[in-house]
Structure formats: C-alpha cells, structure tokens
C-alpha cells in the first residue's frame, strides 16, 4: 500500500480509514469547549469562504439573467458548442491512453521484481510535479513547426501542435500517473493466488487477465478513470500553450472560459464554467460512492 497515500496532484492521501471512528474515547482527549467552538467556527469560515461561496457564485452568475439566456449563451454560441465537443473528444482519448499505460505499469510493478523498478515508480510521478505550462512548452518545442520533427511531420501531412493531437498529448502528459497510481497499490494488495489458480487450471495469459485480474480491479480502475477524466477535462495550462487558441477549432472548454472572460462576455464565461463545475461536482460524488467499494472491499 506504499503508493496509497504517496501522492500529490489530483490524488491526495485518501482518508481510507473510516474517519467516523473518531469519537474521543476518554475525557482526557477532549478539548475545552471554547477551543472546539473556535476551531469548528474557523472550519466553517474557511470552507464557506474558500469553497462554498465560489461554487454558489458560479451557478448564481450563470443563471443570473435567466434560464433562457443561460442556454442561449451555452448552446447558441457556436464556438462554445465546439469547445464542449472538443473537450468531449480529447479527454476520452487521453484517458484511454493512460488506462492502457496504467494497466501495463500496474501489472509490471505489482507482479515483478526487476532492475529499474524503483526508478520506474518515481518516474511515474514526474509529470505531476511539472508545471502545466512547462509541459505544454515541451511539446511545443519537440513537435512545433520550428523543430525538425515538427517540420517532418508537417511535410507528411500531420499537424500536431495547434491541432487536436497536440491537445491529446498535453492532456495525457498532465494526467499521466492518475490511473497507474490507483491500480498499483490495489493490485499489490490483491495478491496472486487467484491468478496462479487460473493459470494452473490451464487458462492462457489473456484469459487470466480478462477473467481474473481485470474484474478484481474494476472499481479501482473506474475510480482512476473518473479522477483522470476530471483532470483531463479541466486541464488549462498545458493545453493553453499547445492549442494556439483558435476559436471554433482548438479551444477546449476551459480555454473558451478564458477567451469569453477576456472578451468581457461574463455571462458566457460563467455558462461555460458552470458545465465544468458540474463535471467536478459529479466527479466528487462518484468518487465518494466508489471510495467505499475500493477501500472496503
């Protein structure tokens, strides 16, 4: 379970241990009443001001001119619609790439001992500690038109930078570890008994994978996909650099929010932001539901 709480970026140490089992068992662990009031008061204030007010504000602003205006801003704007479409295209591809990698890396790390294993584990975390803007710049330098590789790709009819493939790459880079990091500790905890049994009963490698390994991982995989997807849909910095921000072509939804904000279309910006906020809220609800399944068997 070493990677369980070894994390930053979107996955932080999960309070996997039931936090409800907190009740101070004795009088000795009780704080004075005024301390309790003070600390709980600060908690309300912090969460209220920092999180609750902004969340309410998003929807309040989005709907402040009525539901009709909201929908016309959202669905009546061709560029915003395209941005929604582009985000819905880019994130699943990036997530799928990371799922494939996550499964391979988890199988490798949790099941085998080999030289370079420790290095691989720490390299997986690398993309999360790099600033998104730097990540975007890296792809720009490698695949942009001013680089030899970019030139070559251009001559063969491939445009990566300022086009959807670049968006996919940048998004995949930013969300790189999110699936692997969920699966490795889970697979380690699972043990190999069932897999060994399947193999000794004559199952092929792929049969074992599809019938034993994958079903055992399903909730953890779903959990990783949800986190990865939320991060992918909301990615801004890296995508900002590689997209070129062409309205109606390479603007994803978060980029569209910025553009509308810069154009002083506050209504439109909040309408677009409300969609992203809804995705975030749904993600957290899904995460809470899955947490019980993943961490308590």
């Amino acid at each position: 379970m070493s990677n369980e709480s070894a994390s930053h970026g979107a996955t932080v140490p999960q309070p996997a241990v039931a936090v409800e089992s907190f009740q101070p068992r004795s009088q000795a662990r009780k704080d004075p009443a005024w301390v309790q009031w003070l600390l709980v008061g600060i908690t309300y204030l912090v969460i209220g001001l920092l999180v609750a007010v902004p969340l309410v504000h998003v929807f309040h602003q989005a709907f402040s001119a009525g539901i009709a205006t909201y929908f016309s801003k959202l669905l009546g704007d061709k560029d915003t619609l395209h941005a929604i479409f582009l985000t819905l295209m880019v994130s699943p591809v990036a997530v799928a790439m990371n799922v494939l990698f996550g499964l391979a890396a988890a199988w490798l790390i949790a099941r085998f001992q080999f030289p370079g294993r420790a290095l691989l584990i720490s390299l997986i975390d690398l993309p999360m500690s790099i600033s998104p803007v730097v990540a975007g710049l890296v792809f720009m330098l490698v695949l942009g038109l001013q680089s030899p590789v970019g030139q070559w790709l251009r001559e063969h009819g491939w445009q990566i930078i300022f086009a959807p493939p670049g968006l996919v790459l940048a998004t995949a880079f930013i969300t790189f570890p999110l699936v692997a990091r969920e699966l490795v500790p889970l697979l380690e905890a699972e043990g190999v008994d069932e897999e060994m049994a399947a193999l000794s009963l004559g199952a092929s490698g792929w049969q074992m994978f599809w019938r034993v390994t994958l079903p055992n991982l399903r909730w953890g995989l779903l959990y990783g996909i949800i986190l990865c997807n939320a991060r992918a849909m909301g990615e801004f910095g890296a995508v900002h650099v590689v997209s070129g921000r062409i309205s109606g072509q390479t603007d994803t939804l978060p980029l569209r929010v910025e553009k509308l904000f810069q154009e002083y279309d506050i209504q439109g910006a909040f309408a677009a932001a409300s969609v992203l906020t809804l995705v975030a809220i749904l993600t957290l609800i899904g995460k809470a539901l899955l947490e019980r399944k993943v961490h308590k068997g």
Partner: peptide
Amino acid sequence: LVDVPLALPTAVTGLV
C-alpha cells in the same frame, strides 16, 4: 467540500 479544489478546473477557479 475539502476535495473541491482538486476537481475544479483551474480556469473556473480563476474566473470565480
């Protein structure tokens, strides 16, 4: 609600 900052896109945070 503690987890919201992890899930909310940064562009939304900035805008709000």
